[in-house]
Computed example of a mutant assay.
Amino acid sequence: MFAGLTSRHLRAPAKIAAVALTLLLGACASTAPPPQARLGLKLAPATLGASISVQQHLKVERNGRIDELDVALQVEPDAIDVVGLAFGQRVLTLRYDGKELTSWRHVMLPSQVRAEDVLEDMQLTLWPAEAIAATLPAGWRVAEQGSKRTLYLADEPIMEIAYSGTPRWSGTVVLENLRYHYKLTIQFAPET
């Protein structure tokens, strides 16, 4: 899936991260979200509670349109890094060390794709619910029941995430954003 990437690309300044999953979440938005809509969630990489290195295929559906992206991601206790590829070409890299978020983007990537939103959506999907709940602002909450996670604002469901297996970064994950009306399907490549 990532034949053109070298270890230098995949290890960037340290590791490759799960942030790209949220790249598509922001990319599929046709307009920037209202200022209060985003949480500003930035959890420390170590709060994932694991080190992971996976490949994903992402598919975003919105308003009858489908966009796809391949992602190499890695999370280590000291950093989250990601490389996103479209049509075999690198379109995005992100790095978050728990303090600073840096990114590079291809000029053709939509301006709505914001690194902060990518990081936030990735962490809402992959991080433990307890780590998320500990940092949510007043009025927000996260709940899990079986293989489903729901993010609420004032008891209104904002995001629903369904997992096909455990850990959360295996199998297929389907995220439905009820506020911005898009669906993200994340297919994790099997570990070899």
Rank of each mutant, 00 (worst) to 15 (best):
2 F>Q: 08
4 G>Y: 05
5 L>S: 00
8 R>K: 09
10 L>M: 03
14 A>Y: 09
17 A>H: 12
18 A>Q: 04
19 V>Q: 13
21 L>Q: 11
21 L>N: 15
22 T>W: 15
26 G>M: 06
26 G>P: 01
27 A>E: 10
29 A>C: 08
31 T>Y: 08
31 T>R: 12
33 P>S: 04
34 P>F: 11
35 P>M: 02
37 A>E: 04
41 L>T: 00
42 K>H: 10
44 A>V: 02
46 A>W: 04
47 T>Y: 04
50 A>I: 00
51 S>F: 03
51 S>K: 08
54 V>D: 02
54 V>K: 10
59 K>A: 15
60 V>T: 09
62 R>Q: 13
63 N>D: 14
63 N>I: 01
63 N>A: 15
66 I>A: 14
71 V>T: 10
74 Q>A: 12
74 Q>L: 05
76 E>M: 09
78 D>R: 09
79 A>F: 08
79 A>Y: 06
82 V>C: 15
84 G>H: 10
90 R>L: 11
91 V>L: 14
93 T>Q: 13
93 T>G: 11
94 L>V: 09
94 L>Q: 09
96 Y>K: 05
96 Y>E: 08
98 G>F: 10
100 E>V: 08
101 L>I: 02
102 T>I: 08
107 V>T: 09
111 S>D: 13
111 S>N: 10
112 Q>H: 14
114 R>K: 13
116 E>R: 08
117 D>Q: 05
118 V>P: 04
118 V>W: 13
120 E>F: 07
121 D>Q: 11
123 Q>H: 09
123 Q>L: 02
126 L>P: 00
129 A>L: 05
130 E>N: 08
132 I>T: 06
134 A>V: 00
135 T>A: 15
140 W>Y: 12
140 W>H: 06
141 R>W: 03
143 A>P: 01
143 A>C: 05
144 E>W: 03
145 Q>L: 10
145 Q>P: 01
146 G>N: 03
147 S>G: 04
150 T>R: 13
151 L>G: 01
157 P>Y: 12
159 M>R: 15
164 S>Q: 08
164 S>V: 01
167 P>D: 02
170 S>W: 06
171 G>V: 00
172 T>N: 10
173 V>A: 02
174 V>Y: 07
177 N>A: 02
188 F>L: 02
190 P>N: 13
191 E>H: 06
192 T>P: 15
